[in-house]
């Protein structure tokens, strides 16, 4: 974490993301972040999410000393639909490597017969989607594991997503 008196936006974003996703912050943003996913997502969300996203970051910053569950409820249930939708977009970004515009998420909640539109952020984002690891699996068409890995048990969930 930054030693500066001004919070590092990346650290703030990662801490917020850990609460939204349930994945350990040091998994989302390792000290040696070879993929640079956190920085890329912060830039992407800032560009695509506009004031809703900066407002979400500000809301987190104002309440960052609260327990995670309290912050989650504040964001998802107590701060209005727009805040909840941008938080959902951030969550989906981490899990699926795709950006779901908050307006599309809002429309989907009103009419679930029409899928919410999305765009896959990058090929790297596709392989780094946390949905794969939470499922103790790997992306279709991509794996770092050795030939024959399917002959053994999946990797431990705690090793993949952090925590115990």
């Amino acid at each position: 974490m930054s030693n500066s008196s001004t919070p590092d936006p990346l650290d703030q974003f990662v801490a917020l993301s850990a609460i939204l996703t349930g994945i350990a912050a040091d998994k989302l943003h390792p000290q040696l972040d070879t993929h640079g996913t956190a920085a890329a997502y912060l830039a992407y969300a800032t560009q695509q999410g506009g004031s809703a996203f900066t407002g979400l970051l500000a809301l987190y910053a104002q309440n960052s000393t609260q327990p995670p569950d309290t912050i989650a409820k504040l964001i998802l249930q107590q701060s209005g639909q727009a805040t909840a939708n941008i938080a959902q977009a951030v969550t989906l970004m981490w899990y699926l490597g795709a950006w779901y515009p908050p307006a599309g998420l809002a429309a989907y909640q009103a009419d679930q017969s029409v899928p919410a539109p999305f765009v896959v952020i990058s090929s790297d984002a596709y392989t780094q989607g946390w949905a794969w690891r939470v499922g103790q699996a790997h992306p279709m068409g991509y794996s770092d594991l050795r030939f024959g890995y399917w002959n053994g048990p999946p990797q431990a969930l705690a090793d993949l997503v952090g925590g115990s």
Binding site: T34, H35, D144, A156
Partner: peptide, 12 residues
């Protein structure tokens, strides 16, 4: 690494 036998290469 317990999850990446390639040791998380850099650059990718």
């Amino acid at each position: 690494s317990k999850t990446d036998p390639n040791g998380a290469p850099f650059p990718l």
